[in-house]
Nucleic acid binder design. Structure first.
Lengths: 234, 234
DNA sequence: ATCGCCGAAAGTTTAGAAACTTTCCTTGAC
DNA sequence: GTCAAGGAAAGTTTCTAAACTTTCGGCGAT
């Protein structure tokens, strides 16, 4: 029908758009993803959407329910606990390897990503974080581990972070971190990275992740957010 | 058309069958998966296969190539190296948690899985391993980490092992492990598990994985297996 | 009030049309 | 005569629209 961009397929487009819509909050946790509605909205057909859903299900961003379609992943304390326990081990490990094996290119990426993040952090001082902040934050964390030389480790860490972002978006929409300075933590991480101080860097990252999660769990536990829903575990 | 089993969908069937065919060697690494052929063989339609492929691609068992279909994942030294580096960290971690947190049920599972594996190991003394051995081996390793209480960790470890199995199948079809006794290693692992000897157990598992991989890498490097193919990395 | 049936709505699957890639043949230049 | 470039044809993947199956909610009977 329309001219198509070189290597992209329709399913990939739908996948990326859905993913973005989930992260930017257009689709809320637990929400049912109806084929008729989304087909009309995305101007595509069920099979294409189905493929996109399958891919997202692989990343645990949507939940398949046989013969009842798909829903956006629900928020649950158990899930966040599991994800964090894995992150706390995996991400510092990859970060440590990066500090050992990373080259000039890696350092440059860290510096660049941190610069962009600090710009976004300045903008956000009035309260709410914009989409730009989330993307910059994700990019910074991605940069930290990008030098480890292990694609699998990088991919696993990215998927785990992606899920965490969902919780950050919905369980901590406003900065409820009085006794904390995220910007300083990010600065310290970048410093450790450049100094190749593996010991310090790993500890900083571990604490950074654990702290964030503790805060999110607190919020989730309160149950004072609109999107919270207990995931039924089979 | 035909009566369908409760919650299963056609795509799930295809996924499971493809997965089995990959592990049992009916589909060889690098092989192109043509829609017309497989549609006829599985008696289903392209969309269904496509969904199954997408799911398998999420596990890295097949490789998508936009507008050129899918192929069974190729064997490559780089991939195996990455997977192992991740496994060596992740699996002992989960095993350690299991030894701390696992309950009676977990111990029972380990004992049962080890018993089944040892039965298969006895059968295999004449040379070649059958499918049964592979499944029992996978089940044993799955049991070791199943008590850790972290679904994400379990799932990641399972996916990493699945890939390794592919290498074991194709790069070491015949027991080329003269100076080694896998049965004894598995016995030692089971013993450590029941003794809750975390230190020893983690070290044993780390060595077990590393040793297996070193052997596989040697075989791969020789390039003397029919299915070896260098994965082109973009 | 509960259970079972019926109709509507949604998810799933299919078959064929459209789009892309590759191959092979032709044509023209060196 | 050989080789490279261009273009049609075949083969394959990808997408769409419609048929099929299952699930959900309402209605009437027991």
């Amino acid at each position: 029908m329309v001219k198509r961009a070189g290597s992209g397929t329709r399913a990939t487009e739908a996948y990326e758009r859905l993913r973005r819509d989930i992260f930017t909050g257009r689709l809320t946790p637990g929400q049912r993803l109806k084929f008729p509605v989304l087909c009309a909205e995305y101007e595509t057909s069920p099979s294409v959407l189905r493929e996109a859903f399958t891919k997202l299900a692989g990343e645990r961003l949507v939940t398949p329910q046989p013969h009842q379609g798909y829903t956006v992943a629900s928020l649950s304390v158990a899930e966040l606990t599991d994800v964090t326990a894995a992150r706390v081990e995996l991400e510092p490990l990859a970060f440590g390897l990066s500090m050992t094996a990373g080259g000039d290119q890696w350092e440059a990426e860290v510096v660049a990503a941190h610069h962009l993040l600090s710009l976004r952090e300045r903008e956000v001082s009035d309260g709410a974080r914009g989409d730009e902040w989330y993307f910059a934050h994700e990019a910074f964390h991605a940069a930290l581990v990008s030098g480890c030389g292990n694609r699998r480790l990088i991919a696993m860490a990215r998927d785990l972070r992606a899920e965490t972002e969902l919780y950050r978006r919905w369980a901590a929409p406003l900065l409820a971190e009085h006794d904390r300075d995220p910007a300083a933590e990010h600065q310290a991480l970048a410093d450790a990275a450049l100094a190749r101080d593996r010991e310090t860097g790993e500890k900083l990252l571990r604490d950074h992740i654990a702290f964030t999660t503790r805060m999110l769990l607190l919020q989730l536990g309160n149950g004072d957010n609109p999107a919270a829903a207990s995931a039924d575990r089979a």
